[in-house]
Design a protein around this nucleic acid. Structure first.
Length: 104
DNA sequence: AACGTGACTTATT
DNA sequence: GAATAAGCCACGT
């Protein structure tokens, strides 16, 4: 219906907030959880409009484990610093999803 | 309404 | 493994 878009955004934020410290998830996983097959782009768009500072967008990365959105943070290295600070090992701007992947 | 863009994903070459 | 193409959803102009 009409305000599905807002609901969709709200759901994305809720899932991202639920990501435990020291873990990461992918755009596709979130999108799938929301019922979208390939809504990964929408998840990224939702992050762009994330007015809530409590949303740990740095824990959301792409399927390859790359920190795709690091450029959107205060500093390009800030995202890597946050993840490393929480116990996530970042190698060459990539994270080992086999160990740190969290599924909603 | 149409076109282009984007913090994506998967498959193909 | 890199580059290309196609697919999907939402937003701005």
């Amino acid at each position: 219906m009409s305000k599905d878009n807002k609901e969709l955004f709200r759901k994305v934020y809720e899932v991202v907030e639920r990501i435990p410290s020291g873990k990461v998830t992918t755009y596709g996983a979130i999108a799938k959880s929301l019922g979208m097959k390939n809504g990964a782009r929408v998840v990224g768009w939702a992050m762009n409009g994330a007015t809530d500072p409590k949303i740990p967008c740095h824990r959301v990365i792409n399927s390859k484990g790359e920190l795709s959105g690091r450029k959107f943070f205060a500093s390009e290295d800030f995202m890597e610093e946050l993840l490393t600070s929480e116990g996530v090992e970042v190698k060459n701007n990539k994270v080992d999803l086999s160990k740190y992947f969290w599924q909603p």
